[in-house]
């Protein structure tokens, strides 16, 4: 019995145990869940030690890289978060992580997503990215995208004017766009849900195929 066959058998058993959840929550499913969590934690620890600490902290220090002392100090301060009395010392590391991360994410969002999507929306009314001239279909598609974008933004606009009777109502145009935007948002969320469902069905098919192929291989 080869190692591959052993691991195939283990995978088969574990897959069946997971499918046992169809009959309700049971100890077998809980066992598999606990096993998965434990294996994941151990695997992550090994990866962190070998791929991060040794490769990116210890090795540079042994090579005389003084700049590696900075992450060493910050890591040490971050470990102080475990102590309630000294947890404030770890705020420095947290501040660096959160501050730098937020700055990088904000800059990328503006330059990569906001400007990129604006440029992409405009491209429907002009030349295509590959340089070919636009077509009527692209213009209509661009108009459709533009209406959908404005309608979705109008749906999230909650401002209203106070009228003489004291009633607060949004302008008629905003209400119309908000109603249209609600449809676009529903379609988008439906598409996301369909994608998630499709991914789940694909996983089910892949596991079912694995079981069938394993059984067939055993039978043969």
């Amino acid at each position: 019995m080869t190692a591959e066959l052993i691991w195939t058998f283990v995978s088969f058993i574990l897959t069946v145990l997971v499918f046992s959840y169809l009959l309700g929550d049971n100890p077998l499913f809980k066992f598999v869940s606990a096993l998965f969590v434990g294996i994941s934690a151990g695997y992550f620890a090994v990866v962190i030690i070998y791929q991060v600490i040794l490769a990116r902290l210890v090795a540079p220090l042994l090579q005389g890289s003084l700049i590696s002392l900075i992450p060493l100090v910050l890591s040490g301060l971050l470990l102080l978060k475990l102590s309630p009395r000294l947890s404030r010392a770890g705020d420095i590391s947290m501040a660096v992580l959160v501050g730098v991360g937020a700055a990088v994410a904000a800059g990328g969002a503006v330059l990569g997503t906001l400007f990129g999507q604006m440029e992409g929306a405009i491209s429907y009314f002009g030349a295509q990215p590959n340089g070919t001239p636009t077509t009527f279909y692209r213009v209509v598609e661009g108009i459709f995208f533009l209406i959908g974008t404005l309608a979705a933004l109008a749906y999230f606009h909650f401002g209203a004017r106070r009228k003489k009777q004291g009633e607060q109502r949004q302008p008629l145009l905003v209400r119309i766009f908000a109603w249209v935007g609600k449809i676009f948002i529903a379609i988008t969320l439906g598409a996301v849900f369909a994608g998630v469902l499709t991914a789940g069905m694909t996983a089910l098919i892949e596991r079912s195929d694995f079981l069938i192929q394993t059984i067939l291989s055993v039978i043969k």
Binding site: P129, V192, G195, T198, A199
Partner: peptide, 25 residues
Amino acid sequence: LSAQAAPMTQPYYDSGQIKGFVAGM
């Protein structure tokens, strides 16, 4: 991509920021 990531990735392809993608089955 997984099938669940396709809808939200489509705009980046339409804007030309990614050259192409293969999503789902």
